[in-house]
Nucleic acid binder design. Structure first.
Length: 106
DNA sequence: CCCCTGACGGGCG
DNA sequence: TCGCCCGCCAGGG
């Protein structure tokens, strides 16, 4: 446990197929190692790592805030490819698709 | 060392 | 429900 970005990467990797999570949820699960911003920042750094499904991580509104970093609508396509409905850069049925590491991960 | 910015979140009017 | 402001942590100029 590097107690750093690796923690975030590990949690993101644990996100089930067809499910999504939020920056704040991951940050809260790690326990305020920083803020939700740090999670997104780590995601940026993880861009080199193609093993990190960063497209499954969105903000609390279920909006694909980081879709620009994927290039065009790449993030949306990846999500739709997993059966997730995205409308206007926003995940539909987000509440049900939401995967909380604190509650569902033990 | 100081100031600004950022894939965010919560509070308030 | 929408919009504005403040707080958190780290990096860059």
């Amino acid at each position: 446990m590097k107690n750093s970005f690796d923690d975030i990467y590990e949690v993101v990797r644990l996100i089930p197929h067809g499910r999504v999570s939020s920056y704040g949820a991951i940050a809260g699960y790690l326990g305020g190692k920083g803020g939700a911003r740090m999670v997104g920042w780590a995601m940026n750094a993880s861009h080199n790592d193609d093993t990190i499904p960063a497209h499954r991580v969105v903000n609390r509104n279920g909006v694909l805030t980081g879709k620009a970093f994927f290039g065009g609508n790449r993030m949306q396509e990846l999500l739709e490819n997993e059966g997730i409905i995205v409308k206007n850069d926003k995940i539909q049925n987000f509440k049900e698709l939401f995967w909380s590491p604190t509650k569902e991960l033990l």
